[in-house]
Simulated scan of single mutants.
Amino acid sequence: MIHNREMLPSQPAPRRSIGPFAWLKANLFSGPVNTLVTLAGLYLLYWLLTPTIQWAFIEADWQGASPDDCTSAGACWVFVNARLDQFIYGLYPSEETWRINIVFALFTALIAWLAIPRLPYKRWIAIITLFVFPVIAYVLMHGGYFGLPRVSTQRWGGLTLTLVLAVVGMVAALPIGVILALGRRSTMPIIRSVCVIFIEFWRGAPLITILFMASVMLPLFMPTGVDIDRLIRALVGITLFQSAYMAEVVRGGLQAIPNGQDEAAAALGMSYWKRMGLIVLPQALKMMIPGIVNTFISLFKDTTLVMIIGLFDLLGIVQAALSDSRWLGFDVEGYVFTAFVFWIFCFSMSRYSQYLERRLHTGH
């Protein structure tokens, strides 16, 4: 008997099991019930999307500078075009908006450098982003240095103010939340009690109340002649509020790490901070990515609450524009534009977090 010791070459998969038609049959038309549900879903999408697309794109008005240019039955995007600079920069002087553009471009370049894995010197870029970029951004946007005209924070607004509140709140809330989470797990009663009280106090109060108290009540407790900028008050309130939520997210990740990791590091003679910084926290933060990004997205959307203290973020500046007598009746277009901008940023954060999860999923 002759035995064939050679491996047979791999054969391609059957044509019926691969390709778009195979995917449709396996996922959407695999049986009578799934077929009916798929057809009903397609009809519902057709019923909802057809008038929406017709209103937003086909019958919409895009060009113009006044309400008189809106002559069709569709959306009047002329309103957004006419007020776009105000939506982005708020009341910032139009001749000085180049300063904000430089800040946006520099911030985008730094974030892209940190996000692209192949680019080198990430440690130095991270240091520049955390410590050098905020100084440059403040000098450019606020002015008063190097011959730049001073622009008060009262004139900051629109998307610029939303990004300032969100980015500063995210960057500041994460390390504070980590410290609070470690303090809540501490074996020292005083430190643990202080952290627990702080977390429960700030989590138990609505953000709108915290912003109101920071804007109205805080100046009453300051010495005579000391006036804290309204934007600083909002940033402090948002940071403290979100750090309490972040602390619970971090604490959940720390509790998911087996005690054997910490005990093994202690057996090697590592100190507490080395164990946390090199062994426990890197594993915990990897598992906490969904919770952290969820908190960041919530923070980004909560920035709209600063309207109650007189700061005009993107939503606030859109509402202020809608109060103009010339543009009465275009509320839908303004709110749709605002919702779309918020969705772009929140969806981008969500997708990047999923990319990080896949990239860091090295096993546990």
Rank of each mutant, 00 (worst) to 15 (best):
Y335R: 10
D324W: 03
G316Q: 13
W23R: 10
M188W: 08
K301Q: 13
S72G: 11
S152H: 09
P282M: 07
P175I: 02
L211A: 10
L278M: 12
V151G: 00
P223D: 05
L174C: 06
L39Y: 10
G169I: 07
A137I: 13
T97C: 04
M170V: 07
I292F: 01
L44P: 06
L161P: 13
I176H: 01
P12A: 09
L305Y: 04
L356Q: 12
W156Q: 03
A73G: 08
G363A: 06
M170N: 01
L285G: 05
F300L: 15
A109Q: 02
A214G: 15
V236W: 07
Q283L: 12
I317V: 07
I308H: 03
F300V: 15
L114Q: 10
K25T: 07
P67C: 07
F300C: 04
G19R: 04
Y138L: 13
I210M: 12
G277N: 01
P149G: 01
A339W: 05
Y272L: 11
L220S: 06
V167W: 14
S243W: 07
N259H: 12
M349I: 07
L180K: 00
F79E: 02
R230T: 08
I116N: 03
P223Q: 07
P282D: 08
F198G: 11
S10H: 08
R150G: 03
R185W: 13
E248L: 08
T38H: 05
C346R: 08
A126L: 08
V249N: 09
P67H: 02
A320C: 00
L36T: 09
C70D: 08
E263K: 11
I102T: 09
I197K: 09
A137D: 12
N27D: 10
S353G: 15
R184A: 10
L119T: 04
R150Y: 14
L165K: 02
W55R: 15
F198P: 10
G252N: 14
W124L: 12
Q63S: 13
G310N: 02
K274R: 15
F300G: 07
L360V: 06
T129I: 04
L140W: 09
I125H: 02
P12W: 05
T303R: 03
W98H: 06
I279V: 15
D85G: 15
P14I: 11
L110E: 05
Y352T: 02
W47G: 01
D229A: 10
I53T: 15
T209R: 08
S17W: 09
N81K: 11
L161D: 15
G329C: 06
L8R: 04
T153R: 00
A166H: 02
F57P: 04
P290C: 10
I210Q: 15
T160I: 06
A205D: 00
R359Y: 03
G269P: 00
T52M: 13
V78S: 04
Y352I: 13
G225D: 01
L311N: 01
E357T: 14
S94C: 00
A256W: 02
V249H: 05
A214W: 12
V341A: 00
R359E: 05
V194K: 01
M276C: 02
S152E: 00
W343I: 06
A172Q: 14
L84D: 12
